[in-house]
Amino acid sequence: MLSWVAVCFSGLLHINAAYKGPQWQFYLFKPLTIALMMLIGVMGGEANSYTYLILAGLAFSLVGDIFLMLPKDRFIPGLLSFLVAHILYSVAFWQQFEGPMVWWLPSLIGAASVIVFLLLLPNLGPLLIPVGIYIAVIAQMAWGAGEFWMNAQTQVAAHAFGGALLFMMSDTVLAFDRFKGPFKTSVLLIMSTYFCAQGLITLSILS
């Protein structure tokens, strides 16, 4: 319990620093929050492929966080790091799936993803293809988590699906903030949903 209090405290310090400073706090507590989740997963997760894939996804997320925080624009390396993280999460979720697919689920997720892509399209410029690929990968990650939950109906699957949906929400707000223009509450929305998403995915290896 205390370990999750530390995670929440670290995440809140990062969000607060994004608005009020100091700068060192902003740079320290974002990666530290994910590192704490990794530590919780290492200490409490079972020794199986699902745990290892989720931990690897968290590690690539941490690298992506660092790239996106650097003073110089490192958007493409950050995007690639999170792309790998989503692929690792996808493999973890799809490995847990057994049984018939629910086909309306990818239809809903796919439709939402296409709408987001079309809204961003006029502003993407040379990043059209990388962003399009990223949206497709995170959409199928959420689809895999959703199929896992619809089939298993377990707490583990619920945490995975909830985390995947929050990740989609976080990245959607991030994309609009970057390509359509920043707005005052963007950091709060992006980081709160992001930390909650990673927290739920981490919980899925502990349940």
Rank of each mutant, 00 (worst) to 15 (best):
G57P: 01
Y89W: 14
S113R: 03
L62Y: 07
F148E: 04
I135W: 07
S113W: 00
P130W: 01
F148A: 11
S113D: 11
D73S: 13
L105N: 07
V114P: 06
V137A: 09
F60Y: 06
P126I: 07
L70N: 14
V116N: 10
M69G: 08
L127P: 09
P106D: 00
H86L: 08
L88I: 01
Q95Y: 11
F60H: 12
S90Q: 12
F93E: 01
G146F: 07
L80G: 03
A56L: 14
G64E: 03
P126D: 13
I109L: 15
P71W: 04
L108V: 15
L68R: 00
I109M: 12
L118A: 06
A136E: 01
E147A: 11
I115R: 04
A92S: 06
G78H: 07
G132S: 06
F60K: 01
P106G: 07
S107W: 15
I76Y: 14
A111C: 13
Q95W: 12
F148S: 04
L68H: 05
S61A: 10
L118M: 15
I115E: 06
P122I: 04
L88Y: 11
A136Q: 06
I66Q: 09
L118V: 14
W94N: 07
W103G: 12
W103F: 13
G144K: 05
R74T: 15
D73A: 06
F75V: 04
A145C: 05
L83G: 10
A56T: 10
V91Y: 01
L80D: 08
V63N: 08
V131Y: 12
L108H: 06
I66C: 03
L70A: 14
P122R: 02
L128M: 13
D65I: 05
S81W: 05
N123Y: 14
F148R: 04
G146C: 02
L118D: 00
G99R: 08
L62P: 00
A59Y: 12
L88R: 03
L58V: 03
P106T: 03
L127I: 10
A92R: 04
G57H: 01
G57S: 05
K72A: 15
F60E: 10
A56C: 11
Y89K: 05
L121D: 02
A145T: 04
K72G: 14
I135K: 02
D73P: 00
K72I: 11
L108S: 07
L62Q: 12
F60R: 02
V131M: 10
E147M: 13
F67T: 00
F82Y: 05
A139L: 01
P71Y: 07
G57I: 01
I66A: 10
I138R: 07
I135N: 00
W143H: 09
V84P: 15
L118Y: 09
L124H: 09
G144D: 10
G64F: 06
E98M: 08
L118I: 13
W143T: 13
I133H: 03
G64Q: 09
F97T: 14
I138P: 01
F148Y: 11
P130V: 08
F82E: 00
